[in-house]
Design a protein around this nucleic acid. Structure first.
Lengths: 204, 204, 204, 204
DNA sequence: ACCGACGGGACCGCCCGTTGTT
DNA sequence: AACAACGGGCGGTCCCGTCGGT
């Protein structure tokens, strides 16, 4: 008899995280009550607590899961790009196109978590959101720095500053799309950023 | 005998809104419990309910108050500017400088309300946030349109698109400042926007 | 119109404490669930929390109430006694007769609290039980010391040691009565103590 | 092949009882949650339920184990005593010295169980505590009766009454030691009882 | 207009006992 | 025999809104 590759519990745990992540990214990582999680997971409270010490731990893991979904999507879009410029454009396109797809309803998890955990309601979540955002900026800054190195981009660029500006544009666009349930602002942001990259970052 | 210009009740009501607004912009317009409001206002629950039908109504009014504080600050900064370009620059500067000041701790109330009320937790609040954001964009678009009109700005500009891009930048910057408790990203955004206005919007 | 002497809330609070005290002395100061308190007080959980921060605070106050009932009973019995010997005998009689009366079902609250809170389940309750016991021993020791002073009792008596022995007898008797639901052991203890006082403490 | 004298399951069962007994005598025979038992035994809940029908059964067996430890200690101390008087003194000394040793942290299991199960929380436990106490008193009464028989003790003694008084003293002393974490009261009780035995029980 | 007291309900965490799997 | 996983329910706490009294 062939034994299953992963233990039963681990599968359930993964199921919980996935369902909860999608839910929390919409209803809030802190604000979502357990009763809602019970609904979407199909488990009872007693069952949930075999996998997570408390709701906070589940929320943190759900947040991580959201970020992974986000990052894997971005990485997948960038992978094929040959030049640094192409990678930058793919990065922008991927971000702008992402939440329009229904892979992660609720928009950017980092923004959601940041706002919800801002004042000190949950320091751990805020810290994790901060780290996730830092990683995103760092990854983008690295791409830019590589472009400076190989002279695809101008030599006088501050990679981290430019990365921050691009991210700010994208996040602002996501907010407007979320608020208006409309893609037009996001498209303007995308066009703005593509112009920015080509005219201000690219070497002449 | 001289009667006071405003009734006592109205003064109390205003006091409640002001204190609650500052609190809710940090802890959440929906997430803040009444117990916290009791603390900051000095009134008991019974007293609060003489002025508001329920917590939602108070939250809506607190949100409006936050937006007013925000808008008045912006309007004050723009007022003195002579040209359209100067007004645009003042608009950008004012937004970027705002939450750094402690007039409204917690950042942009529209962003805060949008994220919290996003999924359907409170349609009224979301609708009001949407309206507030629309007003902001419209106001900015109007300035830009005036610039196009008087030829300070280029003739081929889409005023509402540019307004949206500027707002997206500002909101993204506010998010990064809130998350990192650091102004550097916001400064890069400001520089980016000033460059944008001068090189892409301004007529040559 | 005559205003009530005490506020309504204070009356309710006292009612809660009294009913809860009688209940907790039987079911446990920590083990009694709120649902039982709801039953005997007639208030709902929400109502109880207007008067007490949490169950622990209520338990502590209930314990104090029990001790007061106990002490007032003892004090009442001793008051009339003229000599030190008479007061000692009244002290013993009062203790031995007390819980037989139905004023405080459940036996000695100090013993009950001590056993329940012993290992560290509730340090505050244990400390309060310790203090209550110390007060009891001190009060008895003072009576004995007064007897030594006025030569009713022998001069070589260690007042605190004798007080401790008497209390130990009484507590042991209460335990046996509680366990066997039978007064016979308690009566033997009483006789033993009266003999002890008259033959070993009293001056010849 | 040599089979082990006791089956594996029986050994595990004994291990569970021993560890649980020590724990429950401190935290309560009823109040100790299964989670704590899981910790000290090293078994999981499922494993425990292979040996006991429910927590109550385990509690009862743990109580019995505690009593056995207690009784064996006493029996060991008495064994060597030649005369009845020596046996009485050994009985007293053994009780007073016992819980000071760390063989059974938490004090007298009978007192602990009596208080916890008093009101009707667990009739079986209360009944078993009653039986255990009765056995102790009976055993002591038998020693005294033997002394009356062989004229080491006075002829007018009520053996069961005297046994009850001695036990009451000891239990009271144990309570005071537990409460104050201090041996002094217990020592006074011991001295008191030795005097009692020698001057009131012993034949002249 | 304001407070104090209260009900009813939702929250999360933990409880104990069972079941299926190894 | 042992464990991991799970259900169903109770635990205390806190929630919001109402109502009577001042």
């Amino acid at each position: 008899m062939v034994v299953s590759r992963v233990k039963k519990g681990e599968k359930t745990r993964q199921h919980i995280i996935e369902q909860t992540a999608l839910l929390m990214n919409q209803q809030g990582f802190l604000a979502t009550p357990l009763s809602e999680i019970v609904k979407v997971t199909g488990l009872q409270k007693g069952g949930l607590y075999n996998h997570f010490a408390d709701k906070e731990e589940l929320a943190l893991q759900a947040f991580d899961y959201c970020c992974n979904v986000f990052n894997e999507h971005i990485a997948g879009e960038i992978k094929g790009a040959a030049s640094v410029l192409a990678r930058l454009e793919a990065f922008i396109e991927a971000h702008c196109a992402f939440t329009a797809s229904s892979k992660l309803p609720g928009g950017c998890p980092i923004m959601n978590a940041s706002v919800e955990a801002s004042d000190g309601q949950c320091d751990k979540l805020q810290e994790r959101a901060r780290q996730a955002m830092q990683n995103t900026i760092d990854a983008l800054a690295e791409i830019i720095a590589a472009g400076v190195q190989n002279q695809e981009l101008r030599g006088d660029i501050d990679a981290r500053a430019s990365a921050g500006v691009i991210i700010a544009n994208v996040e602002g666009g996501i907010l407007l799309r979320k608020l208006f349930k409309d893609d037009s602002h996001m498209e303007h942001v995308r066009n703005h950023l593509l112009t920015y990259v080509r005219s201000e970052l690219a070497a002449k």
